[in-house]
């Protein structure tokens, strides 16, 4: 049994080596992580401050929940209504608006529903009437919340089409786009994920440019009063940097195929 014990010791001793650096944990969304924004921003921040940022990418709902439980120091998400409520409830503090990007509706390039254009609400009404397959996140993420707001505005209850033309994947943006691509269906996505998404198949952008597709990102600190272990100084360093002139420049400087994805708050 001796050799097993030795291996165990060697491996376990090696593991804590990961925990030496100063770091904070950020609960964020798949859209920001998968677009590559963090890989662009964080090295700049780390070089400047020496603080490592560990990003756990989830849906906005899960990310907020993670912050509420105290498992993160900072939340970086996009569901303004939910964020403001949680600040009012005392779970988060120091909320700042960082940047925005926009949602788009993607669907078959041939657009069989004739839903294309600039009016997102009109497009959804058309999709519901023609019962064209639509794939929803269905995971209480920020994108899902935005989609539900649009359906409400359109006066359509998509739950009526559940099991028929309305499909909920209950998973992240990527898997949802994979599903839409496989079914040749319509879906609401953020532009960042779409631009970095490779398995598009027959899908293309159907609706963009509607003001209602505006996607606001906020950043906030988990309340140190509720969770004493929260790294307040390091967390605030990130929040302040993101909203500083330098941080705004870095956000604006992130491009995919020459296209700017996120627009810093003025």
């Amino acid at each position: 049994m001796g050799f097993i014990a030795k291996i165990a010791c060697a491996l376990l001793v090696a593991l804590p080596a990961f925990g030496q650096q100063r770091y904070i944990t950020v609960a964020s969304t798949t859209s920001t992580e998968q677009s590559g924004l963090f890989r662009h921003l964080l090295p700049i921040f780390e070089r400047k401050t020496g603080i490592q940022v560990r990003v756990v990418a989830l849906g906005t709902g899960q990310a907020l929940d993670m912050g509420k439980r105290g498992d993160a120091d900072v939340a970086f998400v996009h569901d303004r209504a939910a964020e403001e409520k949680l600040v009012a409830d005392g779970f988060f503090v120091e909320r700042r608006e960082v940047m925005y990007n926009d949602f788009i509706i993607v669907g078959p390039k041939s657009d069989p529903a004739r839903a294309g254009g600039r009016d997102a609400v009109a497009a959804l009404i058309t999709l519901a009437e023609t019962k064209m397959p639509f794939v929803s996140r269905g995971d209480k993420s920020g994108t899902h919340a935005a989609e539900l707001r649009l359906w409400k505005e359109a006066g359509v209850d998509p739950a009526q089409g559940r099991g028929a033309w309305y499909r909920e994947t209950g998973s992240g943006m990527g898997p949802t786009l994979n599903t839409a691509s496989g079914m040749n269906a319509y879906a609401l996505t953020d532009r960042g994920t779409w631009l970095s998404f490779k398995n598009r198949g027959e899908l293309g952008i159907v609706v963009q440019g509607d003001k209602r597709l505006f996607n606001q990102y906020g950043v906030m600190l988990v309340s140190p009063a509720k969770h004493r272990h929260v790294k307040k100084a390091e967390g605030m360093a990130l929040i302040n940097w993101l909203t500083s002139a330098e941080g705004r420049r870095a956000i604006a400087g992130f491009k995919i195929d020459g296209e700017q994805l996120f627009f810093p708050e003025e």
């Binding site: 990961f18 944990t25 798949t30 998968q34 963090f38 890989r39 560990r54 990003v55 756990v56 990418a57 998973s171 992240g172 943006m173 990527g174 898997p175 786009l177 994979n178 691509s181 970095s196 998404f197 490779k198 398995n199 598009r200």
Partner: peptide
Amino acid sequence: GGNIEGVTRVMTTAIALETSKGDL
């Protein structure tokens, strides 16, 4: 683990991530 790049990203979570990015 949270699939944190450089900290807790392992083979299987990396595969899941690339799949969700559509890079099959």
